[in-house]
Each structure stands twice: as C-alpha cells, then as structure tokens.
Nucleic acid binder design. Structure first.
Lengths: 144, 144
DNA sequence: TAAAAAGTAACAAATACGGTTACAAAAATG
DNA sequence: CATTTTTGTAACCGTATTTGTTACTTTTTA
C-alpha cells in the first residue's frame, strides 16, 4: 500500500474539525490531536482545501474549518482527495511481453485491480463524515 | 499500499504454472516471463508452497507445479497467501489519546479499514485462477 | 509594528522493497 | 560416487517513499 496513513490522518483531521464545530482551528492544535508535526497536517490540508472540503484562513486568529460540502461528504471523497491517483498500470510490474503469458497478464491484472479498488471504494462511499462524527459525539462538548 | 507487486507477480506466477499444464517449471523460466530475478520468484513461491497452492521439487529436472487445490482457488486465496497480514491497527498512526478525538478515532478507523478491506476481498474472491487461465487460453499451446 | 498562522521548499531519518550475490541442501543423472 | 541442476535462505545494496523537522515567505489581525 502506498502511504495509507495519509488517508487515516485526513479522516482524523476532518473529524477533529467537525468536533470543533466550525471554529477556525490552527494546524498546531490539530497536530496535537494527531500527535505529529503541524507541517504534516498542513500538507494534507492543502489537498483537502483543493478538494473544497476545507477552507483555510491565514493570519492571527485564522486556521481551518469545514466547508458546507464537507458536511455530507463520504470517506471516498476524502480518499480521493488525499490519495495519489493510482498511476496507470501496476507499480514495479513490467513483464516480458515476448512471453505469451507476460504479454497478456498485465491487462488481466489491471481489470482485477480495478475490480478490487471498486469494491473498496464502494464501501468507503457508504460511510459519511457525519457518521464518523456521530460516533464521536459521546465525547463532544456542547451536544446533549 | 504495501508492496502490491507481490500480489501481481504471484498471480502471474500461478497463471504461468497453469499455462505450463502441470510441468515442473524452474524459477528461472518463470523469472524470464515476469522479467525479474529468480530469487524474487522463489521468495514468493515459498509463500505459495506454504499455502499449498504449489509444490516444489528440488534437484535436476525439478521445479514448481500447481497442486490440485490451486485449480479451484480464487485470487483472494493468492492474496492471503502472499500479502503480509495487516499489522494490528494502522501503520504510523498513533494519535494522542488524551484528546477526546484522538482517543476514539483509532477504533473508528479500524472498522472503516476492515470494511474497505472486506469490500476488496469480496471482489477478489469472485475471480478464480481458472478464469485468469481461461483469459490466457487463446495463446495457450495444445488447447483447441 | 508585532504576532499568529498558512504555504511551501528543502532536508534528514527511517522504512520498505526489488534486485543481486552467495552458499548450503537436495535430487536426478551418468 | 561425482556432477549438475535446482530449491531454500540469508545477507546486502540501491532506490524510492514517507514522516518528521527546520526555515523562510506571505498574509492577516490586533
């Protein structure tokens, strides 16, 4: 798996922002929850801003907050925002095309990987950020 | 993604053995089809032998061949044979448990990953090695 | 003007993986 | 019995990826 912690940390970030209910949250505070360096958080947030799940405000009192779009987003949206696109074809796999098997296996495997990926994405699409937030609610202040 | 080429190469290996119809195939020959080093092939075959999908015969005239069990196996069986078990929990993800979000997010993410993995495995379970072999048939000698 | 914070580049350390070499063990063959 | 072939492993190198960190610029607020 390529870096799978990108996705995990991103969900954590967005869950944290949901937990903070729209306040402008600086990367330093998020980093404390994730237990890593603020720059790591800002790197991932750059992708989430590009995907319009988060807005950033610079300067004193600034920070990050969820957009309205993020309220209804699924974990698949998050996955696609932060996970680098699977490069066309398989990594480190270049069989000998002069062998009959080597010549055909690559396209077969591509369709297999497409199926597997699609199975995974179907599951991620069924979990919303709101659902993750709801599982967090018991510890959420200001909600009864 | 951890090494996804382990799985891809393993499917290639087993497809090649199917293509060779039960003959004892040395790792050198398989390596030529995969375009890699024989030791890489033998390393993966060690896992496939352990999973009883392949038998190995040492010595001159030896090599590898599919077991009867391999005839009906699915790509999920191959995946499980060669893909290192997901280490309990997420790699490189150790949130701050003194933060209410950090304390809960890990178990939430674990169930998310379990779902995603299960979606992927469901797809892999629906593709048999025989089906891959069938897609290879047009180039397979000795079959009309 | 000063402080706070994002944005980003650059670099270090750790990790993982593929490829390679080397060698021991086993099995067939003459 | 000696030789050859081949598996089975261990060890190592180079590369790529990822995380963490430092440093600096830009923007915004007070």
């Amino acid at each position: 798996m390529s870096g799978n912690s990108r996705f995990a940390v991103s969900v954590h970030i967005l869950a944290y922002l949901a937990y903070r209910q729209g306040a402008a949250v600086p990367s330093k505070e998020i980093a404390a929850s994730v237990a890593t360096h603020p720059v790591v958080i800002r790197r991932l947030l750059a992708a989430l801003v590009q995907a319009k799940l988060v807005v950033a405000r610079k300067g004193a009192g600034g920070g990050f907050a969820l957009t309205p779009a993020a309220a209804g987003c699924t974990l698949l949206d998050i996955y696609r925002a932060v996970e680098p696109k699977p490069v066309s074809g398989l990594a480190h796999f270049a069989p000998n095309h002069r062998c009959p098997v080597g010549a055909k296996i690559e396209s077969i495997l591509q369709s297999v990987f497409a199926r597997a990926q699609s199975g995974m994405e179907t599951e991620l699409a069924q979990v919303t950020l709101a659902a993750v937030h709801a599982q967090l609610r018991p510890v959420c202040p200001g909600k009864k």
